[in-house]
């Protein structure tokens, strides 16, 4: 039972991210957070999710944060304690935990999530797709349109980033010329 131990480590990292004011340290800790969560995904048999999280969460996202911190301030300003957010979080968390107590137990093979579509995909993938990795078979074939939509989302986000940040160099030069 190594999963609960890793979860404790994950929670400790999250509290450290919440408490720290040094944004550079926070960016580094969020990379460590992604790596530990990738370990947890592996233990929960989600190997594809694990290596995506390790590559994208621990690698690429950390680079994005560091790139942003190079432009913005490095430390967060100290701010007074406010009761409102804490109350909201405690109430929402309590309601969610209460609602979750009716759900199937962890690892229960008779849970509804396993008895309908999941079993269907596992049963049909070998003969229909002939691909050893069921996750790949579902991602690229059964849910191919979904993956195509995902590509459209990434393209849109990329265009958005380019519109927001592209041409900044040119504008800076124009302003210098006017000075």
């Amino acid at each position: 039972m190594i999963e609960p131990l890793l979860f404790v480590l994950l929670l400790a990292l999250a509290v450290a991210i919440l408490k720290l004011k040094d944004l550079f340290a926070i960016a580094m800790l969020s990379g460590a957070f992604s790596l530990v969560s990738a370990g947890l995904f592996t233990l929960m048999d989600a190997v594809d999710v694990a290596f995506t999280e390790a590559a994208v969460g621990a690698g690429f996202t950390t680079v994005l944060f560091l790139g942003t911190l190079a432009v913005t301030a490095n430390t967060e300003r100290q701010q007074p304690f406010r009761l409102g957010p804490l109350l909201v979080v405690l109430v929402v968390g309590a309601v969610l935990i209460w609602a979750g107590l009716d759900a199937p137990l962890y690892g229960d093979p008779t849970a509804p999530v396993h008895t309908h579509l999941g079993a269907e995909f596992i049963g049909r993938a070998p003969s229909e797709i002939d691909m050893p990795n069921i996750v790949t078979a579902v991602l690229a074939s059964y849910r191919g349109y979904d993956t195509m939509g995902e590509t459209a989302v990434i393209f849109t986000a990329g265009v958005g980033v380019m519109l927001l940040l592209g041409g900044r160099k040119g504008r800076d030069l124009d302003e210098e010329d006017q000075d």
């Binding site: 048999d45 190997v47 990795n133």
Partner: peptide, 12 residues
């Protein structure tokens, strides 16, 4: 939610 006790990664 997707974890099955005693199960393995979904690769044949």
């Amino acid at each position: 939610m997707g974890k099955v006790a005693g199960g393995t990664a979904p690769i044949f």
